[in-house]
């Protein structure tokens, strides 16, 4: 009668200790993520700012000196191209896999292809692009092969992020749309994809960051030039920022190092700006979302 509680329950002290241990682990993980990010930003900004001249944005490169206008525009063109090419392909693939695929061999092939593509070393993809497109098809170092290789690289990220985001859309939204007799495409656009947009945008962001930050596949496909990009897709090399980060860093002169820092800073700022724009888009479209309240 006296012993009501069953024996063998974990003691309060043990539970507290585990709670503290867990908290420490989580804070450690947080520091592991936030620390390097801060270090990177502070390091890049701290080194680039003292020697910063605004005219790097407006003057063309002259080998290891001069400005970076050609590379800035080139990187922007590459990112825009990837957004169009890989963005549409990836999002549509994700929508197909989530909404239309019924299973079967075709779907398995698509999934395996995505996994293979995602696991491919970028430099190998670049080399394939060089051999098959630049040399094989005679396109030379130019925009189209660079875009294609970058897109092959990032399509898996976009497709997977899209598929995962669509899987998260509550069944009740789909059923509600169905019960109203909404045509499938209408429901998909107005209700389903809109709800999944934050996840899809995250996938696109990762893809764009990769496109902006890649070097190896571009060395093989884009070439480099001191000139601004032209409107031609073929036969004209295109400059990009990561090339200067690496090449100028390996030069002996302090002037070249400054250009390297400048290129890094511009890249970091571009990525941050992209994050802000993406957040704005998301918060604009999600102002009526269930999670927003």
């Amino acid at each position: 009668m006296a012993q009501v509680l069953p024996t063998g329950l974990p003691s309060t002290r043990g539970r507290r200790a585990r709670a503290v241990a867990f908290r420490v682990l989580m804070l450690g993980a947080l520091a592991f993520v936030v620390g390097p990010a801060l270090w990177l930003v502070v390091g890049v900004v701290g080194r680039a700012l003292p020697g910063w001249r605004w005219n790097v944005l407006t003057t063309l490169s002259q080998g290891t000196s001069g400005g970076l206008a050609n590379a800035v525009v080139g990187t922007l063109v590459l990112m825009a191209g990837v957004l169009i090419l890989a963005g549409t392909t990836g999002v549509l693939t994700g929508i197909y896999l989530s909404e239309f695929a019924q299973g079967g061999r075709g779907v398995t092939v698509v999934r395996v292809a995505i996994d293979v593509l995602a696991g491919f070393p970028s430099i190998v993809l670049g080399y394939v692009g060089y051999v098959a497109l630049c040399v094989g098809l005679g396109w030379g170092f130019s925009l189209l092969p660079a875009l294609m290789i970058l897109s092959f690289m990032v399509v898996p990220y976009i497709a997977k992020a899209t598929e995962a985001a669509l899987h998260q859309v509550p069944t009740s939204y789909r059923e509600g749309a169905e019960a109203l007799g909404m045509p499938g495409g209408h429901a998909l656009r107005r209700v389903v994809v809109r709800t999944a947009l934050p996840g899809i945008v995250t996938g696109l962001l990762i893809a764009l960051s990769i496109a902006g930050g890649e070097t190896a596949p571009l060395l093989y496909t884009a070439g480099v030039t001191n000139n601004l990009p032209t409107w031609s897709l073929l036969h004209h090399p295109i400059a990009y920022l990561t090339y200067y980060v690496w090449t100028d860093w390996n030069q002996p002169t302090a002037a070249a190092h400054v250009v390297s820092y400048d290129a890094s800073l511009i890249l970091v700022v571009m990525v941050l700006a992209m994050l802000v724009v993406a957040r704005l888009i998301v918060s604009r479209t999600q102002r009526h979302a269930e999670s927003a309240t």
């Binding site: 009740s172 939204y173 019960a179 107005r190």
Partner: peptide
């Protein structure tokens, strides 16, 4: 038409 057990407004105004 159909009305469900849990209210399921769409994420729009």
């Amino acid at each position: 038409g159909m009305l469900f057990q849990r209210p399921n407004p769409f994420p729009m105004s």
